[in-house]
Amino acid sequence: MAPDMAAPVSPRRAAPARGGDGIAAGRAARPPGGRRRARGWLYVLPALAVYLGFAIWPALNTLRLSFLTWDGILPPSWAGLENYVKIFQDQALYEAVLHSLVLIVFFSLIPVAAGLLMTGLLLGKVRRGMTFFRVVFFLPQVLPLVAVGITWRWLYSEDGVVNQLLGLAGLGSFTRAWLGDYHLALIALGLIGTWTMSGLCMMLFLAGAQKIDPSLYEAASLEGAGSYRQFRHVTLPGVRKEITIAGVITTIAALASFDLVFVTTNGGPAGQTNVPALLVYRLAFNEGDIGGASALAVLLTVIVVAIVSTIRYVTRDKS
């Protein structure tokens, strides 16, 4: 932060005394001059004010509240790290964190794999219907998750479509109320995430693949590489950047998921699908434990930032 702050200051100071122009131009490598750069702030200010006032300020306040014991009405009292310690002592709370990590598999890993498969299938030989498949695969991503949740709640129900299909496939003995199953509810929930996120991954990969130099495919083809090897050695390295982005976006969606859980299971059965976002909402707005809710929200943010940074580090450009 410090070097960034230091550099712009000198041209601004130099501006009133015209003699400073040489330094300013040399520093900024652009002619505009100090007055213009200062006036430019008028353009940035409205957005900055809204962003600071309604996103950053509340975020910092949530951090502050996480060190307090407060029911939202009576004066708060200092709690130190107590709210954080509680998260690790309360089984329901730390299990919720674990559940959200499991969801990453279904919201992120499987969709990235499915997206790559769709991309591989759509590239090259498929001419007719390309747009159709793209539009269809991406469709779940634009829907409100509440409506998606209601739809799947019914699909997963005792006499829903999932059980109907299992029955038709001769697997009638496996039928159950999926979202009410103690062991399988979380997985069933995760698969809804897979359904919504795969198309997003595909869309990112297709965009990346369009920038790959076609001559690479020709060269591979001349060397006798089949579709699979072309995909493996040309397409896959070409979309590495997009894989990172898809991983980041879907991981955030997994960790912060709320809407879907709220309408499908609301954390049940027996807390098996509790996720941090749901408990933040419940603690803050149903149980009046603002401090606990804030601490959980802060922890959730720390996990998001840590995992996103890890993904970026692991997939960084080594060259």
Partner: peptide, 8 residues
């Protein structure tokens, strides 16, 4: 995440 902002 929205959750961080929404409480406060």
């Amino acid at each position: 995440p929205v959750e961080l902002v929404v409480v406060a």
